[in-house]
């Protein structure tokens, strides 16, 4: 080793030592956080390899026999592939179509309220369901929508028709699911738009009023453009989750009678993997789901950056 290199190495080592001395506490602090992510986030990613294996608990993830894309071809060729993909996409589609605009509309209406107390009360009440557990929400739904529930009682007294066991009828499932989602999240979802609205410069409105702009014109030309970037970013994030219909609520509400319209990717993975211990196959379905999601999020973000200059990154 030549002298120059030695000096350079020494300098490097010295700098490293200085860096460690200065930041030793930060490293100590971040260590448990990194360990958490390694064990509970990255180890499962490493575990995705069992999508290509016949996982046997006794052999472990590494030693289980490699089977290539067997699970994927089995899934794509199965009757379930089309069903759960269609259900997942349709539920998401309805949820975006009706559930995405709902909090925006609520925020716009709230923003027009002059009575601060009234406005705050509405907000307090509508945020509430967001904090109530899915189990309780679904418990109420099952009770209210049952044959003896009050929904049927009202409908029969109004229309005279025989009661329907709503949650046992496949045709009703998506509507009930999306409707109750909106009921639960509309208030909470409006917070972000309300704060975007409050960030719009008041002078624009004053100038518009002096020019004689009606409230409708102010909405179109000031308010909506003012919150457009928030809307676009929220839409990107929502579309990026289009394949993620959370299993929790579906699991609580569906029955074998409604699998036809209610069974989604996440519930299918749960049944195949957790209930039937078909680990390799269920992991393959899950991996397919995550991969599509990942590609989707990146494409939507790219598209939005080109079209509107708004993007997540």
């Amino acid at each position: 080793m030549s002298g120059v290199e030695e000096v350079a190495d020494g300098k490097k080592a010295g700098r490293f030592k200085k860096h460690m001395i200065r930041y030793i506490y930060l490293y100590l602090m971040i260590a448990p956080v990194i360990v958490y992510y390694l064990i509970f986030m990255y180890a499962p990613m490493f575990g995705l390899q069992i999508a290509f294996k016949d996982y046997r608990p006794s052999l472990g993830m590494l030693q289980s026999p490699f089977v290539g894309i067997k699970h994927f071809t089995a899934f794509f060729g199965s009757y379930y592939f089309e069903r759960i993909l269609k259900n997942t996409l349709l539920i998401s589609f309805y949820d975006i179509l009706f559930g995405f605009p709902a909090p925006i509309i609520l925020a716009l209406i709230l923003n027009e309220q002059r009575n601060a107390l009234f406005k705050r009360s509405v907000q307090t009440v509508t945020y509430l369901p967001h904090f109530v557990s899915t189990v309780i929400i679904c418990g109420m739904m099952v009770d209210f929508l049952s044959l003896n529930g009050w929904v049927n009682a009202i409908l029969s007294s109004l229309t005279g028709r025989a009661p329907t066991a709503f949650l046992q009828v496949p045709e009703w499932f998506r509507g009930i699911f999306v409707g109750s989602n909106i009921w639960q999240e509309v208030g909470w979802g409006s917070i972000i738009y309300l704060s975007a609205l409050s960030a719009i410069n008041e002078e624009y409105y004053e100038a518009a009023r002096i020019d004689g702009a009606s409230r409708w014109q102010q909405l179109r030309h000031i308010t909506l453009p003012g919150i457009l970037s928030t809307i676009v970013i929220m839409l990107i994030m929502r579309v990026g989750r289009v394949m993620n219909v959370s299993s929790e609520k579906v699991l609580l509400l569906y029955t074998p009678n409604t699998y036809e319209t209610a069974d989604v990717i996440s519930t299918f993975v749960y049944r195949k993997g957790i209930l039937e211990s078909n680990y390799g196959y269920a992991t393959a379905v899950g991996l397919f789901n995550s991969a599509v999601n990942f590609v989707l999020l990146i494409s939507v973000n790219q598209l939005s950056r080109k079209v509107t200059d708004n993007s997540l990154w």
């Binding site: 986030m41 180890a43 499962p44 575990g47 996440s266 993975v269 749960y270 957790i274 269920a282 899950g286």
Partner: peptide, 11 residues
Amino acid sequence: FNGGLIPTFLI
């Protein structure tokens, strides 16, 4: 991106 339900469960 994450491992998803089954790999997390197994880990």
